[in-house]
Amino acid sequence: MKGVDTRTAAWPTLMVFLLPALAVYAAFTAYPVFRTFYNSFFNIADLDTARYVGLDHFRALAGDSTFRASVVNTMIWSFVAPIIDVGTGLLLALCLYAGVPFARFFRVAWFTPVLLSYVVVGIMWLWIYNYDWGVVNATLRATGLGALAHSWLGDTHTALAALMVTHAWKWAGFNMVVCLAAMHSLPSEVLEAAELDNCGWAAKLFHVVIPLLRPTLLNLYILAFIGKMKVFDLVFIMTDGGPLWATETVSTYVYKRAFNWNTFDLGYPSAIAVLWFLVVIAFVALLTWLFRQKDRLEF
């Protein structure tokens, strides 16, 4: 069809469509990213004076024990928690797919936590974990297990796990709806065989459902992984990194070094941000590549 070419347009036309978005991107994403890289080589005591320090910040990071603790916590969270999130989401989706009654109600009830802000979820779970009257300890005492009652967020051994549970509570519903959507897009005859209605469902789960949903599940794992590498709000609200850095994450540490501690230097937290930026991108690239390789080997 010569003459009616709707696939090309003059550059000025393209620019009218594209330029506003690109300008916003340049001003509020690209420039700040470059500026953070630049800042990481400076000591910025206030907004106007910057002293060049080269790689000093990066060298200092190697000996920073708080930073090391925050990396360990974030890594544990990023690798372990996505398995819980995706696993729960998959099981919940299977229940709905198997055609339980009141499926609509269940879906709403399970999905609602996804919509709540971290501030609301954080305060809610601060109360749930409250030592004196929180649901967890109240339940333990009521069932005669009062000896197990515990200051869940105040103990270095349980604080990180408690936060991970809260985070999983919020995100299970998201993984559920994604798994459910993926199941609905599969050929129905195949999955009907995998309904949960009779014995041997575990075998069906592992031999039919999981292999079919592999791409979606791996995708969800990567999404959850990225989310956990950035985790900030919940920690900031519930424990602020404590007790004794037991729940410190890289994000909260960057925030503290930049805005909370009175070591007013924006260069050092910028260096952490740069390093973490590279780590996240490297891990996402690696995971994507690994999962692809495995797919190729199987076929």
Binding site: Y25, F28, T29, Y31, P32, V33, R35, T36, N39, L47, I226, M229, K230, F232, V250, S251, V254, Y255, A258, F259, L266, P269, S270, I272, A273, V274, W276, F277, V280, I281, V284
Partner: peptide, 16 residues
């Protein structure tokens, strides 16, 4: 940029 950790723009946005 969907995968960028927010800290990579947070501090410099504060300056800007």
């Amino acid at each position: 940029s969907i995968i960028f950790p927010p800290q990579i723009i947070l501090i410099s946005l504060f300056q800007v």
